[in-house]
């Protein structure tokens, strides 16, 4: 049993044939589309490294079947900015040294994007609560929180 999956990822439309129902969205993005920016850590929804946006909402791509993403619009870390033009959140991660080994970073960024859209993030407690589903094994949380705090501040400046 296999199916065709049609998705738009970072603005590009893909039609992929012969997708097995059991293929996880995380493996689909990495192995079939070659988008290896999405990292796979625990593969059971605990670490948050594989977080992507599906129709604008952050989801764990290891807890969704590729076949369920048929017709969806997906944004991965590759879709945020480019090395030359980082987006606001990425720029703050660089400014505040919000990463150490970098493994958790794609998930932190995609979660941060969703948090910035959905919550006021007025306090560090709120930011930490929002990040509680993303693990950094380097324990570099202080600077990640600082980066998101700064990005929330930039957002407050630009939103009228």
């Amino acid at each position: 049993m296999s199916a065709t999956v049609s998705v738009t990822v970072n603005g590009t439309k893909y039609d992929v044939q012969d997708v097995e129902p059991r293929l996880l969205l995380s493996d689909f993005l990495r192995d079939m589309l070659g988008l290896t920016g999405t990292h796979v850590g625990c593969e059971h929804g605990v670490c948050g490294a594989c977080t992507v946006l599906v129709n604008g909402d952050s989801v764990r791509s290891c807890l969704m079947l590729a076949i369920q993403a048929n017709g969806a619009e997906i944004t991965t870390v590759e879709g945020l900015g480019t090395p030359e033009t980082l987006n606001v959140l990425q720029a703050q991660f660089r400014e505040h040294h919000g990463l150490q080994c970098g493994f958790c970073t794609p998930g932190m960024l995609m979660t941060g994007e969703d948090l910035l859209r959905k919550y006021p993030l007025a306090t560090d407690d709120e930011i930490r609560e929002g990040l509680s589903g993303n693990l950094c094994r380097c324990t570099g949380y202080q600077n990640i929180v600082a980066a998101i705090r700064a990005a929330a501040g930039k957002r407050a400046e630009t939103v009228p």
């Binding site: 948050g48 952050s58 989801v59 807890l63 969703d114």
Partner: peptide, 12 residues
């Protein structure tokens, strides 16, 4: 509801 797992889990 905010105690129900994390944002990405609550989205699904």
């Amino acid at each position: 509801m905010r105690h129900v797992a994390h944002l990405a889990i609550r989205n699904r």
